[in-house]
Amino acid sequence: MTRIVAVSPALSGRKEQRQAPDSSASLNVETDLVVTRVLPAPPALVWRAWTEPERVTAWWGPEGCSVSDCEIEVRVGGVFRLKLSAPDGTVYPCAGVFREVEAPKRLVLEGTAATTAVGGSACGAGLPPGAVVTVLFQAAGDQTRLTLHTRFPSAAARRAAEASGYKEGWPQSFDRLAGELAT
């Protein structure tokens, strides 16, 4: 089961900061979204599923989507790029830069402005422009607790990404990832 931690400021009626799950950063309910999932594989294998292009293309994106032109340079300053094709044929670019790499425990990526180019989306095909996405890989027995913490540059950017399917897309992607890891 995928868990999403996000409290709408409209529902809470106030700005709120909480401790982000499994992170030393505080959680800002206006700009942050956290998705967690326990996956049926050890952290080293889940890490490979996130860092090897041939594996990423098998699961990235919501159900019915496909990935092409995947390029991943797993190093600080390295690129993460792919093209996500929706079932209707629309192609959405995804582009980012690795800010931190701690194998096999933690990846931090920052979405780049390239994702707002023609055909781009506020959700950045999984890596929103200007957002910092932290991915944590934690052992849970012989499984992995995967935590994806997205910090958007503003509340408006978070709302735009959610309107583009970001909040619904990651649980679907994690379903696909779990399926790939189980094979």
Rank of each mutant, 00 (worst) to 15 (best):
R75Q: 12
S23Y: 04
C65D: 07
G120A: 06
L107W: 09
T150N: 06
V46K: 00
P104K: 07
L39A: 05
W47Q: 06
A95W: 05
S26C: 13
V133D: 00
G61D: 00
G61H: 00
G124S: 09
P87V: 06
S23A: 13
T112I: 05
F80H: 11
A117E: 13
R81A: 11
A10Y: 12
P87I: 07
V101F: 10
N28R: 14
A139C: 07
C123F: 13
L33T: 07
G120C: 08
D22T: 06
P42S: 05
E100Q: 15
F137R: 03
P21V: 04
D88V: 03
V35C: 09
S85F: 04
G13D: 07
S8A: 15
C65T: 15
L84R: 08
A139T: 08
L39H: 02
E52H: 13
H149M: 02
C70L: 03
A86N: 09
G119P: 02
R18S: 08
T112L: 04
T150S: 09
V97A: 09
G120D: 02
P104A: 12
T150R: 00
L146R: 02
T51G: 08
V79R: 15
L107S: 10
T57W: 06
V133I: 10
Q138C: 11
Q19K: 09
P62N: 01
P21C: 03
F137M: 04
L33C: 13
E110G: 01
A49C: 15
G120Y: 01
W47T: 06
G141L: 07
L109A: 06
V132T: 13
K105T: 13
E52F: 09
F98G: 02
V91Y: 07
T144M: 05
R99M: 11
C94L: 12
K15Y: 09
G126F: 03
V97Y: 00
S8C: 10
N28V: 10
E102V: 15
Q138I: 12
A41L: 03
T36V: 10
